[in-house]
Design a protein around this nucleic acid. Structure first.
Lengths: 255, 255
DNA sequence: TAACATTTGTCCGTATGTATA
DNA sequence: GTATACATACGGACAAATGTT
């Protein structure tokens, strides 16, 4: 640590400090909610400049292990995970359960020409008017997911208003005359949150979002909705519902 | 930009620079493989110190958008995403397709007492012998996923050897007398890769893994396998298969 | 091969702003 | 109001990797 610079991936001062702290968290000396030593004291302990200690803490924060609060300190993150079920009849509202206060708020809505991939998914003419609704779902006051939904403006002209009133997709669709619908396709990916997402979901920079992209349709297959939801990965787990009864050729047996 | 510090999450100089560059990448002005402006020139362009420009680049690098190479520059990362289907009859091998060379190699296997949650999932007696198999799947030479599979040692004593021979779960199970099986449950989460995972999957530090936890069973419901797979999130997207034909039989809302 | 400029990586020191206790 | 602690920004210095001359 006497010479200032080391090799690229093999070890520099801040990496060594980060590894040390990581080990203390993994080893249980530092538990969920515990406050880490201050930047100043870390700097003294490892005989480095405060910035070097900061860089180590920033690395841990980027990994989602710790969270820094200005004026307060840096703390070990603990996760409370909510389970979100995904199936043919997925309804977010029902998957939250009753013990928690759930709140879905429409952040923004607008009528725009449908982007190509949305138009294709909703079987609309390219460039036709679509309704885009952004909403933020909170559970127990904590933001869980950020949804971008697209609807065919010609098919469901009043959906935005309905969503603002009810804050439930199922109820809003029913208000627009849709009695029943099913999930047609769902894709899942994960990436780092953007700045905008991090701001709305109250995430640290570098935090992860689980991204689901889904299409709902009427029972006859007419597409209704294209939705992209970004979940705060640290707070959500997705449970995929498979059909209860396997329909293997001739097998009449059941689980 | 005259005053040094701004509010915590809302905007500081390095965030603005990062947003600008992010937009250029998203907008296509900067394409995969392109070299970004040097730190020095970015500093001049935005009238900030080189460190401030560096922080913006570091944020993009943490998001996996760019990669910095000492002595060379900072470059836009390109991703090739493989689609992995998840459904009642998920077979990883079939979802890869034919245009790619797929290779699943058993890294390690051992007989161990089943951990509690594994024993429960496989309906084994607590502490009974289970077989654990770790395998690494590569596509086109690039590691895609790292799987940990558990089997009941009493039920499938030769599964490890079969997996080493065939490198296909379906084929290995068939070799052990299992003609058919289905996916019972799948959970999806995302987190940062550990050091060990990053090493095996050849990930950058701070990279993301998509974690699926699944149970496969015989058609009569007898559990066969508990598998946890960690996919390199940047290289994989999960596609969830819903039943093709919706049947309006039961409207029961899930709790 | 060797010298050189370029570019990123690391570290130190200083200063100021802002949120929290 | 004061002290503490993190957030941002600037300036300088040198090391290490790369590419070119």
């Amino acid at each position: 640590m006497t010479s200032p610079s080391r090799t690229p991936n093999g070890y520099s001062a801040w990496r060594l400090i980060a590894e040390e702290l990581r080990a203390e968290i993994a080893g249980g000396q530092l538990r969920t909610g515990d406050r880490l030593p201050t930047e100043k004291s870390l700097a003294e302990r490892f005989s480095v400049n405060r910035h070097t200690a900061r860089q180590a803490l920033a690395a841990l924060a980027a990994d989602g292990l710790v969270e820094s609060r200005r004026g307060s300190g840096t703390f070990v993150i603990g996760e409370t995970v909510h389970v979100h079920r995904i199936g043919m009849r997925t309804r977010l509202t029902t998957s939250i359960g009753d013990r928690h206060s759930s709140d879905g708020r429409v952040v923004e809505s607008a009528v725009e020409p449908a982007p190509p991939e949305i138009a294709r998914a909703l079987r609309m003419a390219a460039g036709a008017d679509a309704i885009r609704v952004e909403s933020l779902r909170k559970v127990d006051g904590q933001p869980l997911g950020l949804a971008t939904r697209w609807f065919d403006a010609a098919r469901l002209p009043d959906i935005a208003a309905a969503l603002r009133r009810t804050a439930s997709v199922t109820a809003a669709l029913r208000a627009c005359g849709v009695e029943d619908y099913v999930r047609v396709s769902t894709a899942v990916a994960a990436r780092h949150a953007t700045v905008a997402e991090g701001s709305l979901l109250q995430l640290e920079p570098g935090a992860i979002v689980l991204v689901t992209e889904a299409v709902d349709a009427l029972l006859d297959g007419t597409p209704l909705q294209h939705g992209t939801t970004r979940f705060a990965a640290g707070r959500v787990r997705l449970d995929i519902e498979h059909a209860a009864v396997p329909q293997a050729g001739e097998h009449g047996s059941e689980a």
